[in-house]
């Protein structure tokens, strides 16, 4: 029963829209103000200081690109795999901050957000990793460019 729900095309369509919309929203202010996003990246103290701007810029655009593709349903499974890698990376980053006893502004939604790192954020990211996995595994192109090209 649960397996059927998780593999259902309606749920996967909804998860695709959720992930795509969220990634676009999250990336918007980061793309507009990469310098500010770089400050958030540096606060995690994971990425080497010298390349923190480069990393922040690339990450912001990666989120935007993956979000747009998911929303449009183009290269959907690959985009979902990219989303899964990004969300897993965020999960590890937040976990390492928690292990080190730090509390930093998560920077998740650029300058639009205000949440700090904490266990709840880990749970949210774990859900997003799972959602990305389900879309990668079961998306059938419903209401997306992939589906249109395949005649669905």
């Amino acid at each position: 029963m649960i397996g059927r729900i998780l593999t259902g095309r309606e749920l996967n369509f909804a998860l695709r829209l959720l992930l795509g919309g969220m990634l676009i929203y999250a990336s918007w202010s980061k793309v507009a103000s990469p310098q500010q996003f770089a400050m958030s990246v540096r606060a995690y103290e994971i990425v080497p200081f010298s390349i923190s701007n480069l990393f922040a810029l690339c990450l912001a655009w990666a989120e935007l690109g993956v979000g747009v593709l998911l929303l449009l349903g183009a290269f959907t499974r690959s985009a979902a795999a990219a989303s899964m890698m990004l969300m897993a990376m965020f999960f590890v980053a937040i976990a390492t901050v928690l292990v080190r006893g730090m509390v930093v502004d998560c920077g998740c939604f650029g300058s639009e957000g205000g949440s700090t790192t904490g266990p709840l954020l880990l749970v949210r990211n774990a859900f997003l990793v799972l959602a990305s996995f389900l879309v990668m595994r079961h998306n059938d192109g419903m209401f997306g460019i992939d589906g249109l090209l395949r005649g669905r």
Binding site: V31, P34, L57, C58, L59, A60, W61, A62, L64, G65, V66, L69, F75, R77, S78, A79, A80, A81, A82, S83, M84, M85, L86, M136, R137
Partner: peptide
């Protein structure tokens, strides 16, 4: 499944490249 991850990496690289070009 490996091909999806390879595709995902390619998407990230292309999007980052667009970002670098836009920054320039």
């Amino acid at each position: 499944m490996v091909k999806y991850f390879a595709g995902g990496l390619a998407i990230i690289v292309v999007a980052a490249g667009i970002g670098l070009a836009q920054n320039a």
